[in-house]
Design a protein around this nucleic acid. Structure first.
Lengths: 356, 356
DNA sequence: ACCCGGGATTTGAACGATCAAACTAGCGGG
DNA sequence: CCCGCTAGTTTGATCGTTCAAATCCCGGGT
């Protein structure tokens, strides 16, 4: 026969019923050992593969997680973060018997329409929401519809921040910049500047706060912190001109700066271009995200440990060991909100001795 | 009622049979206008969504394309190319009613096993194969099993290169480097060097040949070409030391170089660092891939036009307009091998100097 | 008056799996 | 000897859709 074998064919070959074959695959413990071996042999011999769609139709479980493909951000360096997250997610999802389905969406409304279609069509059991914003309509929709999901990104300032029905995973930016700053302080540097984004971003404020805390712990007062703080949009060229303006033709030392901690690799790249151009190639600059850019340029950077983020995201959907998406708020899920501590990657751009 | 509406519910609401509802969705032209309107109204009113798995079970069509998630290449810049391709693919697939399913695989054998599972489980109709190599076992398997696929990357040197049953899309590297070289020649530069990869890569040889042809057309003889040619592994730091060795402390001019065309942005970055360190920030360097790195550094680069690549890949699977994967070798598919011409993106060539 | 053609619609069966309930042994206790 | 219990297995129904074939309807030709 040319058609693919079905449970019926396997059952016939093994001399058992369809249901027993099904049990061997889905609940092996209820089948007697010798029967199981016989059925397994038939499965192997016929090369049987379960028909995923038939199973889904009956069980209403797809073992698939939907992810909206984040924007193509042509000039930004930051897109790489979501790409890497996607990589890690796919890899660890595979290890837990899940697959990732991508979809595109123009805006939030369109994305919600896609959620509905994917769920109603039994295409996905859950979705991962990325690039969350304050009062995100997608999160509201998912929560009220009780569709399983997990967000990559905290709901900054939302009244629902602690709602266990709205699980999220995020990177602890505060801890990351604090570590980066402490590292520089430990090298004997003192006037460590901050280059962040314009106000209004939860992530940006969080990362700045980490720097501020480390500086405060080293005895720097609030007024001086204000002086050490710069900001620019997340584009290398703008960061560069911001730093150039700050230097105003002076040496960094004369401008009151021993080093710079940045909110992103884009900013760090711009800052590095400015100081190197001004003739201070060893001025320490630390970035955030550990993108290929920082690696190629030998820039120290805070790595987001996206593998841990992906693993945590899956735990929030599947529980610690399961292979099935749990309903929202299920007790099998431990802490529904996870902060992943990032890791400072030190490269040669932060030399052991300060230079001017 | 709390359960999702089915075709049966819609049929009842519209006073027609299940099949007519099905026809409204899949073959509207066979349904009389007024009936169609009535059914459509019922669909909208009930918020009916077809159950994708049930449809797949019956039709044996999944409207899904599988893509193995390309490697996580932590330090390389090049991974960004496949990521961008994936973005474009997802976006254009969506426009043609297709979705992308990701999967992970450890090696080629594992990948083939996944192909089989995905196909037998009716999870995907076709796959896109990336990072192809000479005599790729995956391609052989797909071709002999007659499973629909398209490769991103030419089968360099394979005897099956012209087999219409083995469709591929690729970027015309030759044309890209030729254009980049011609651009520099047009600016009055003459001794344009080549920085490529060590021999043995089809893609590398192709890109080098484009440079060589443009140079030959400008009257440079073979012996001189040999002198102008450098190579390094695809890592910025190695590229940098290769160029430094070539300069040997001299100015680029004294070392016989007016500019450099590179096989990748990683190489270009290394080259740029070397010449800038040597005090020649305006020495023109052109990269390949137009990654965020080159954009951020203001490096000219050859853009692969991955949107066109993705569109072409879908055409090779679906035909010009269809929404269904065609069997391998179907006449609905025009040319089964497509070379996409890339586009030179010119940026200011000396990003690290103050403008002026 | 009859039949024919063909467009529009309906009917029953099938896709391949799992669920729920029923059945069969085999065993021990009363 | 019968009853109940349990572990293991089988049976019939079902998930929601589309296919293939049958049916209905209506106008026109002979």
């Amino acid at each position: 026969m040319t058609a693919l074998p079905t449970v019926g064919d396997v059952a016939q070959a093994a001399g058992v019923s369809r249901q027993t074959v099904s049990n061997v695959l889905n609940a092996p413990q209820v089948v007697r050992d010798d029967t199981r071996d016989r059925v397994q042999a038939a499965i192997d011999r016929l090369g049987y593969r379960p028909h995923a769609s038939a199973r889904r139709l009956r069980t209403r479980v797809s073992s698939t997680i939907g992810v909206r493909l984040p924007f193509v951000d042509r000039d930004g360096v930051s897109g790489a973060v979501l790409d890497r997250f996607l990589h890690e997610l796919a890899e660890h999802a595979d290890a837990r018997g899940m697959r990732i389905m991508l979809f595109a969406a123009r805006d939030h409304d369109d994305e919600i329409a896609q959620y509905r279609r994917l769920r109603d069509g039994a295409d996905v059991d859950a979705v991962v929401v990325t690039a969350t914003s304050y009062d995100d309509p997608r999160i509201d929709w998912l929560a009220t519809e009780r569709m399983p999901f997990v967000a990559f990104g905290r709901p900054w300032g939302s009244p629902h921040a602690d709602d266990p029905g709205r699980p999220w995973v995020d990177v602890d930016g505060f801890a990351g910049t604090r570590e980066a700053t402490a590292h520089l302080l430990g090298r004997g540097l003192r006037r460590i500047g901050w280059l962040g984004w314009p106000e209004g971003s939860g992530t940006g404020e969080d990362r700045r706060a980490g720097w501020a805390e480390a500086m405060a712990a080293a005895g720097v007062d609030a007024a001086e912190l204000e002086v050490l703080s710069l900001s620019a949009e997340d584009v290398a060229s703008l960061a560069r001109s911001t730093v150039e303006r700050r230097l105003g033709g002076r040496t960094p030392d004369a401008a009151g700066l021993d080093a710079l901690v940045c909110a992103s690799d884009s900013l760090a790249l711009g800052a590095m271009m400015a100081v190197r151009e001004a003739g201070h190639p060893r001025f320490p600059v630390v970035g955030f995200d550990n993108t290929p850019v920082s690696a190629a340029l030998g820039l120290s950077s805070v790595d987001q440990c996206l593998d841990l983020v992906a693993i945590a995201a899956l735990e929030l959907l599947l529980g610690d060991t399961g292979e099935r998406v749990l309903p929202p708020g299920d007790p099998g899920i431990r802490a529904p909100h996870r902060l992943i501590p990032p890791r400072l990657v030190v490269r040669r751009s932060t030399p052991l001795t300060p230079t001017g």
